[in-house]
Design a protein around this nucleic acid. Sequence first.
RNA 1: GGCGCCAUCGUCUAGAGGUCAGGACGACGGGUUUUCAGCCCGUAAACCGGAGUUCGAUUCUCCGUGGCGCUACCA
Length: 491
Amino acid sequence: MALRVRYAPSPTGSPHVGNLRTAIFCWLAARKYGGQFIARLEDTDRDPSRYKPESIAEIEESLRWLGIVPDEWWVSGGPHAPYVQSERLNLYRETAELLVTRGMAYRCFCTEERLADMRQQQKAQGAASGYDRRCRYLQPDEVHRSLAEGRPHTIRLAVPLEGTTRYHDLVFGVVEVENRFVDDQVLLKSNGWPTYHLAVVVDDHAMEITHVIRGEDWMPSTPKQVLLYEALGWDQPVWVHIPLTIGKDRKKLSKRHGATQFVEFIRAGYLPEAMFNFLVLLGWSSGEENRELMSVDEIMERFTLEGIHRTPAIFDYDKLRWMNSEYIRRCNLDRLLELSLPYLSDAGLLDNAPSSEVRAYVLRVLSLIRDRMHLIADVVELARPFLSEPEKAEPSGLRMWLSGRGASERLECASKYLGTIGAAWNAAQIEEAVNQAAAELQIARAPIIHTLRLATTGVTAGPSLFEMLEVLGRERVLRRLRRAKEWVLEA
RNA sequence: GGCGCCAUCGUCUAGAGGUCAGGACGACGGGUUUUCAGCCCGUAAACCGGAGUUCGAUUCUCCGUGGCGCUACCA
């Protein structure tokens, strides 16, 4: 079965993580079953307060970043182009008129004011909301008169008054709704543009979409679309609704919980494979095996649409962060270098185009700090001691390790032994020097280690001292030690 | 209010008519070490409630409760 699946974002703002999660499921389904992954821009809402054309670039960036580039979309075109709804308006208008001709839809001349009043009244009476169908029963001559007067109107779907509409959902099973609860949905707005319900059905049919995979929030309106398919005599696609992702308080994921826009995760330094893995696990699991860390290929092998869950999933930022650190640990250093460079230059720690010597140095630094990174952005603080001269020492550390006569002694003595190491400057030699200093001063080596750490980096936490000094290099270390003598507090 | 969907540790989840209800994140405790991170070991932590079916239900059915979603000429 060659299935065709589409991802249909609206350019109404920076794309949401949950939205890209849906895109991942769509892509996975298409790839898994040897089909096509299509993306279509649903830009029929031109209200300036919602229409945000800038977001299109972010949608494209997000898909590319995740490695789920559509086979057919507005960027590269395809056999069913255009893949932008605003360029397909005639199709929707013709379809709406066809429905009117067949008596499956009707013209509605109600003004927005009247509809607002109606809704307010329904609410006041605690009645069910929905269009009262006044225009559905207009006499033909009334319609003609209004039309002749050029009165603006919409076209509404004439939903059957009785009976039940049901559809089968691959995830949720059979869903049925009595038609009397289904609203006479506007299909064509008075400005001639379609609503989602019309456009999505027309395009999915035209583009030969076999599986509609989308958020669970679309479930309540699916009967309207099923009715449209029936009215048009078209075969329905397979319906697949995916549970939503929500925040810790079980409310819609919002800024209160953390990042929500997909590009925020890109900027923060999450790895694509971590985002992919994490997002897929939010609402899908491979089954019996107790494995969570999986490559795209491994996920692909196990993925089935039927395996998608029915419960909304809370977006756990902590777990994502953990997963990202796991992937960073698995990331090879050359790639990590490329990923880190922009953060380092943005922080002013590096030039935009560092020399090969500098790159080699940063590579060695990365080998020391990789296991400590959760986000690529962490590279800035972790690498800072290696890339900029410490101006001062951390106050608490200063009191502990760089105050009093003992501090000067430790510094002098350690410097002396470190100074004797020449070309063979490496962790083993450095450790030996520290041991010698400890022996001479007749103290444990810990105080010396702490003192050296603070003196060379200005901070009390960091990688293993010996390796760190090795990477920093002889000249830099000795220079910093001389400099640090000025920091010593007299007791 | 109406309509729809859902219900296993705090979270993501596995699971089966009879299991010590398993794993992961997080939390907590211990170990390693030179600090922090990490790593290793361990601990606590769940079947929403009530009926029914059954020898036996957390698992199947119904009801209740709770949560979420929709209720626009937005998608």
